Simulated scan of single mutants.
Amino acid sequence: MTRVTDAQRPTLPSTELTTPHIGRRRLSWWIWGIVGVIVVAGAIDFMVTTPGWQWNVVGAYIFDPEILSGVFYTIWLTVLSAVCGLIAGGVVAVLRMSENPALRAAGTVFVWLMRAIPALVVLLFVFFLGALVPELTLGIPYTDVTLISVKTNDVITKFTAALIGLTLIQAAHVGEIYRGGILSVSKGQHEAGGAIGMTRAQSMRRIIMPQAIRVIIPPLSNELITLFKNTSLVSVIGFTELLTSVQLVYGRTYQTIPMLLVACLWYLFLTSIAMLGQSALEKHFSRGFVRRSKVQSLEEPA
């Protein structure tokens, strides 16, 4: 029987070989941590010691009734535009994925236009629609029969123009998010639903959407959060939301910087709340799914 001497025994890799790499990595953490602390300290010092910020003015106007009114209309416009955009986006996604070439072309053209035209121009076009179409009529096409006729300017007010414009913009982006999420689910899932006797609608509701929603939630939430900031665009048509309220105040007081800071603080607050909601939604819809990285780490040998 052959005996294996100590010199012939295979040697296991020493953990000391990885120590320099770990040491260098931790050293870089310390370096970047110190750099981060210096940058944050400098930013705080700039914000506190620079007299131009006029924090006393910020404190005086942060809860001013005129500013709070603007905040209310910003939230109200955001919520309505988001709801209308989600519904309209579903219609756009259906058109884009339709088997009917005419419907698919209509959805494609709509998305193309909304992506090509700046949001500000869309809002202005909607607001000045009365210059192009003085009256909105409902009747029998190519005849003189008119059932309903109203002046365009009576319908397209500042608020309705803002709502319609933002809804059109949201519909294009949300529709593409829906479509991307549905396309992320493999074609085999559609076929599996049909194999067990489900209709196309049942398969979409019970199989496809529960899987697609995890892909849809992050970009959709980001789009809705961005909507908070996009409401500031409606100031160009004179609708009084947060930014317009701030502009009206500094137009009287000439305190531009502190009033803009008031707007920034409110936008930060509203966006932070929306981001918390996004995080909660992602956790809710990711239940029951294991991340790929975790699965791979479990499969790796110890």
Rank of each mutant, 00 (worst) to 15 (best):
I177G: 04
S286P: 01
T152C: 06
L138T: 05
K187D: 09
P258W: 07
S297E: 10
E223G: 04
V236R: 00
V234R: 07
G277N: 08
P118M: 01
K229N: 08
M275A: 09
Q278N: 09
V236S: 10
T108W: 15
W55K: 02
G180K: 06
I140V: 15
S28R: 10
K294P: 04
G23Q: 09
A60L: 11
I273G: 06
S203Y: 01
G188I: 00
M1F: 00
D154K: 05
H173N: 11
P51F: 08
N222H: 08
V91S: 06
A302W: 01
S235C: 00
A212M: 04
L27M: 13
K283F: 06
A263S: 11
H173C: 04
R292H: 10
G33K: 06
G70D: 10
G107D: 12
V109L: 14
I87P: 04
I44E: 05
F159N: 07
S221G: 13
P141G: 00
V145N: 00
A82L: 01
P141F: 07
G197E: 06
Q296L: 14
V295E: 12
F46K: 12
T226E: 01
T78D: 12
V121T: 09
S184H: 05
R214C: 05
W266M: 08
E282V: 13
L86H: 02
F63P: 01
V295L: 15
L168M: 13
I87W: 13
Q255M: 12
I216A: 05
V121F: 04
V290A: 01
T15A: 15
